[in-house]
């Protein structure tokens, strides 16, 4: 059980994030939830690629040996940059939503304004 703690942390992170997205009504809280889900998925990818007693997949002058898997790390890099891109776009939408509706409550926005 204790050896699976990183995996459980992944599950917990994703669930906390999903809770934020589904139940929180504040839009910025929803965005934070999305960020948490994304962190969870990133952590999952890295955890999949970890090998016990390994070093990073980089050949340097230090004594090496077993190396952790490089592909998940590359995928995670991609995922991180995608995450910040999405976050920026979502936040700029939120700024405009606030300018229109004067609220960040998901229930109160979305009325007809035409």
């Amino acid at each position: 059980m204790i050896y699976n703690i990183p995996y459980l942390a992944v599950a917990a992170l994703i669930l906390v994030g999903l809770y934020g997205v589904v139940f929180k009504r504040n839009l910025i809280k929803m965005v934070i939830g999305v960020t948490l889900i994304e962190s969870g998925v990133n952590l999952f990818l890295i955890t999949l690629g970890y090998r016990k007693g390994s070093t990073a997949p980089i050949y340097t002058s230090s004594p090496g040996g077993l190396m952790s898997l490089p592909v998940p790390q590359a995928l995670t890099l991609t995922s991180i940059v995608i995450g910040v891109a999405v976050l920026a776009l979502m936040l700029s939408f939120i700024v405009y939503i606030y300018r229109h509706y004067k609220t960040l409550d998901a229930r109160k926005i979305g009325g007809e304004d035409e």
């Binding site: 700029s92 300018r99 304004d113 035409e114």
Partner: peptide
Amino acid sequence: GLFAIVLVMAYATSTFKKGEMEDG
């Protein structure tokens, strides 16, 4: 790219006035 995001957001939001909104 990343600096453009921060710069645009910071500049645009700092030039908003309180209660200012373009008409619908």
